[in-house]
């Protein structure tokens, strides 16, 4: 822990924070929910549900990460911009992130009330951080090994994956600041599974403390991913326990933001780790003390 604070929207957090970012897909084909929140009313219900469950942030995405039908910028905007505006109207204090790599989409959602641009494809559109800076928004910088958006890793190797992650994220974070993003509104994410085989994602998890030590708020996106599935030889739908184990390890290392499908379980794991580390008092203690 390096003792810093960071800001998302109008809120400020310290380095001991462990925040839940709930995934809300405006897609018909995402790998985990398979279009469960494609319909707008279902997506609204999902937002209400995760807010009630204690999510700190929602991350709204209009394009699934995996390869598939090409979605143009206009189509992407059609999926997310009005939805962001409506979520903002219903939840004035909720932190809203949008998962996009396109600057034009970023601009539209920030105008609609979003707080965070989650650049899940590692700066593929260099204009995205400029937009974030212009709106005093937060931005998530991710490591993808330089791959093209919506491609799977194929025979990628690194001399040292963590070194590559550090080098890329420090460069992206520095560029974001130089483009006008506030220093305390830059978040870094090693991006498990993106440009990485499972060995890479496991090593990043094992050595996450090296990323925490960089002094930027650290986001991890572990939820039900292939590296969990391959670690346990389990298909999508049976990866929650593995996800939570990786969540606990990441929390112990000091990661700050957890992008997840399951809010309740994640919140419990994060609170449990925070209580063990001493960053949070237990909820209520009477055992042996009555």
């Amino acid at each position: 822990m390096t003792g810093f604070t960071f800001r998302l929207g109008s809120r400020s957090f310290d380095e001991r924070s462990r925040l839940v970012m709930a995934i809300v897909n405006r897609t018909p084909d995402s790998f985990y929910d398979k279009g469960a929140t494609w319909r707008e009313d279902a997506a609204f219900d999902r937002v209400r549900e995760v807010v009630a469950q204690g999510a700190d942030i929602v991350d709204i995405g209009g394009i699934k990460a995996a390869p598939g039908v090409e979605i143009g910028a206009d189509e992407e905007k059609g999926r997310v911009v009005d939805f962001v505006a409506a979520v903002r109207a219903e939840h004035p204090d909720l932190l809203i992130s949008v998962d996009t790599w396109r600057a034009s989409v970023g601009r539209a959602v920030l105008e609609a009330g979003a707080d965070i641009l989650n650049d899940a494809w590692g700066g593929a559109d260099p204009g995205l951080v400029e937009v974030a800076g212009e709106f005093d928004a937060a931005v998530v910088c991710t490591h993808t090994g330089g791959v093209t958006p919506r491609t799977r890793p194929h025979r990628i190797e690194y001399d040292d994956v963590v070194e590559s992650v550090v080098e890329s994220l420090v460069a992206q974070a520095g560029r974001a600041v130089s483009m006008g993003v506030a220093r305390d509104r830059v978040v870094i994410d090693p991006a498990h599974d993106f440009g990485k085989n499972s060995w890479h994602s496991l090593e990043v998890t094992r050595r996450l403390d090296e990323l925490v030590a960089l002094g930027w708020p650290l986001l991890v996106s572990l939820s039900n991913k292939d590296f969990v599935g391959e670690a346990l030889d389990l298909p999508v739908g049976e990866r929650l326990t593995g996800t939570l184990a990786a969540t606990a390890i990441s929390a112990w290392h000091g990661a700050h933001i957890y992008r997840v499908h399951e809010v309740v379980e994640t919140r419990q794991v994060l609170d449990m780790v925070s209580v063990i580390t001493g960053d949070l008092p237990p909820a209520r203690t009477a055992r042996g003390l009555a």
């Binding site: 008092p281 203690t285 009555a290």
Partner: peptide, 13 residues
Amino acid sequence: PLLLPEYQGRVAA
């Protein structure tokens, strides 16, 4: 002892 500050959780026992 649950009255002592060192044993306070987030809500009082």
